Every structure is written in C-alpha cells, then in structure tokens.
Simulated assay, not measured.
Amino acid sequence: MDLAPVPRLEPAEVLAQLREHLGADLQLLGPLPGGQVGAALVAWPDGRRGVLKAGGASPEAWQQVERTAGLLALARGRGIPAPEYALVARLPDRIAVVQELLPGAPPAQVEVPLVEEMTGLTERAAGLLSACPDVPAVPLYLLRSGPGFCLHQPLAQYDGRTRMLLDLVRRIGTEHPTTLAGDDLVHTDFHPGNVLVDRTGAITGVVDWDGVGRGDRRFDLVTLRFDMALPGTDQRERSARRAAAQWLDARLDDVLEPALLRAYWAHMSLRLVDWSIRHHGPDDVDRWLTVAATRLG
C-alpha cells in the first residue's frame, strides 16, 4: 500500500498538456490558497477566469468527474451555489478540470451565522438524488482503506493511541452499514474552507465537490463540526469557533441518532488522523485524536 503523501498539483505542467492535446490556451495566474492537494487560478483567452484542478486518470476517476459535472447542475437547480465545469479533459496521465470561478472569498471568520447558513444549504440537498439510482453511495471506509484517504495502515503503524482508535473504528464498522444511506446529495468535504462569501458574509459559492455522492446530508454537518476544532489565530476567533461548535453540537444531537452520529464521527476521525500522520505532524495527530475521543470515548 502506498502511504506517501498525495502529490500536489503542478499547474504549469497540466496547462502545457492541455495546449498540446486540446489546443486549450489557458494562462496561469497563480496558485489558489487552501486545499490539501492544490488548485490554480487560470484565465481563458477572452479574460474569463477559472479554477484548474487535476487528478488520477483511471476509468473510475473519469466516470466520477463526468458524474460530478451532472450532479453540480442538479445542485445549482436546487439553489446550491456550485460551480459549473467549463472543461473536462482526459490527458495521458491525469484528468484535468477547469471549473467556473465563483464570486466571493473564503470567510475570514467562522461564526454561528455562517454555520447556520451552511446547515441550511445541506437541507437543499435533501432527496436530490431520488431519481438518480446510478449515483453510488458514499463509503465510510470503517472496515477497509479508502482510495488515497481513510487509510488504515498509518493508524496501525503510528503508535498505541492510533491503533486503539483503529480498533474502535473497525468495531463500529461491524455494527453499521459500510456506506451512507439515503438519497441526499452529499458534499463529503463540507467546511468553511470550501465556502465563499460576499462582503456581508452571505454564502456565494460551495466548491471542491470531488467526493460528491449519494447518502445522508447530515453527514456533511459532522464534517463541518470537525473543522470547528481547528485552532483560531487569536482569542476572538477561538471564541467564535467555540460558539459555532456548541451550536453545531446541539444541532447534531437533535438531528442524528447516537449510533449513526458515532459511525460518522468514526469516519471523520479515521480520515483526519490518517491524513495528519501522512501529511502534517504530531500536533495535528494529537488534535484529531482528542476530537475523536469527544464522541467515541
């Protein structure tokens, strides 16, 4: 099993391939901040701007990208501000996507009103895939490793604490279905870093839909809750995040039965501890182990 970090985007290389194979003349404007793997800001010859991303070239990855473009159209029809895919290209060693650049910027502060609005957006995803039985359910990976994330082996190798967490995750996995149930549209990486807002703080965009699938929209609230555990840069931000976390904890207790919340919490704990082991360091591993324990014991 490959436990190396996921490679980051090399935008100049991807743009050169797009020119060579498709004649697409896109100008690189620079990297976009945030994200774990990377995205770049590009411009079309007519001045329109877009966001360049790239990923693996397997048949499954191509199918997922094509499916995602259609799902984002469904989301926009329900009032979810998702980007349109302007270009999808199958290159020799990767798949490149240039998507619409939505207005706004990532929120400077995470406060209760933002979390309330994000929660409201998840409600718009309710039952959105009821007429799309071909869209796969989102896996939880509690019993097996995921494709490049939610890997089990790093937890088994890191230390005694992560091995205990892995044992607990697998035990929860034997008591719960291995995929999300439901016909909702699920983002799967729903946090403030993937949201854009205007000057008033209103949401203008939701981005980074690479893992979109079928399931339970409430799963996205658990993803959002984990983000509330990130440290703030100052006392005001830390206080705002604590208030948002408290609001969201009450919401989760209200809308999710304990066993289901525990399974979703196990998935996010596995996902973030694994990612921190391979991409960050001991401080991040400690943080996510602490968050995991708040709901898993």
Rank of each mutant, 00 (worst) to 15 (best):
D2I: 10
V6R: 10
P7L: 08
R8M: 10
V14P: 04
L15K: 05
H21Q: 12
H21S: 07
L26P: 02
L32T: 04
Q36L: 07
V37Y: 03
W44I: 05
R49D: 00
G55K: 10
P59H: 09
Q64C: 00
V65G: 06
R67I: 04
T68R: 13
A75S: 12
R76N: 01
I80P: 03
A86W: 15
I95N: 08
V98G: 09
Q99V: 05
L102R: 08
G104V: 11
A108M: 02
A108W: 02
V110I: 14
L114S: 03
V115Y: 02
V115E: 03
G127C: 11
G127F: 11
C132S: 15
P133A: 15
L142K: 01
L142R: 00
P147K: 15
F149V: 00
L155K: 10
A156I: 11
Y158I: 14
R170H: 14
R170L: 05
G173R: 04
T174F: 07
H176Q: 13
H176F: 15
G182Q: 02
D184G: 01
D184T: 03
L185E: 03
H187C: 02
V197H: 01
I203N: 01
D208K: 10
D210W: 12
L224S: 03
F226Q: 05
A229C: 10
L230T: 03
T233R: 15
Q235C: 07
A243K: 15
A244F: 00
A244K: 00
Q246G: 11
W247L: 12
D254S: 14
V255G: 02
L260A: 09
L261D: 04
H267K: 08
S269M: 06
I277Q: 09
H279W: 06
P282W: 03
L296W: 05
